[in-house]
Design a protein around this nucleic acid. Structure first.
Lengths: 112, 112
DNA sequence: ATACCTAGTATCAAGGAGGATACCTATATG
DNA sequence: CATATAGGTATCCTCCTTGATACTAGGTAT
């Protein structure tokens, strides 16, 4: 293994990089049940996210191949985002992550 | 759900924050088989990581409760890191992440 | 005429994470 | 005396991400 850069070689390092965006996991979770429109997505997220940031996050997930952007030629515009094939396969990670996250939340509650 | 900050409420947002460190996933992977010493860990990682950064990453994972730091009173020092109980439960995520990562690596190879 | 709608982009400022370097501990060895 | 050892911390600098704001398009509703 090349120790310089393990991206594209080590599955963990590769995954890490994909998930590095502040909202990537949450976005993949929100998209798992089918196409969602841009503003719809924005309304499902915490208020702190701006549409600039959401736009950028979606763009990079698209460039990485996890999601697909479908634009309808309408006025006002309509754009839908949904998971690609490889994005869909992420569901098992989401499931494990969801379960672990619940346990972790319990853990920090007990500790407090 | 409080839309201001979902940390500690939504398992996905919570997990995202825990995994935000550049090396967190890889570190959890390296630690999954038992205690590892600091320099041992460093040698297993890509050369770009400095001991300063490794130290910080380990410290935050420790503060978040995922790993345990055990210090032996010796000269020269000996410090071992290993997964805590909740850190151990992360193994299912690692498994799913590892499999997905492999598939993703295949995916980008085909695309190129 | 004006305002609103969606889904953006362009630009700038702020913050934080990471990396580089220097320094620390106390002992053993050459 | 100098150096290596193991595992750190303190400080500074830089880059990247995020957030804030302003702007765009063309059609519809007031």
């Amino acid at each position: 293994m090349d120790k310089k850069d393990l991206f594209g070689l080590c599955p963990y390092v590769t995954s890490q990089k994909i998930l590095s965006g502040k909202w990537s996991i949450y976005l993949l979770y929100l998209l798992k049940d089918g196409p969602v429109r841009f503003n719809e997505l924005k309304r499902m997220m915490p208020e702190e996210i701006t549409h600039t940031t959401l736009s950028r996050q979606l763009k990079s997930l698209e460039e990485e191949g996890l999601i697909v952007r479908k634009e309808y030629s309408q006025i006002p515009p309509k754009v839908e985002y949904f998971l690609s094939e490889i994005g869909n396969k992420f569901d098992k990670v989401l499931l494990a992550l969801g379960e672990w996250g619940e346990e972790y939340i319990e853990f920090i509650k007990e500790k407090a």
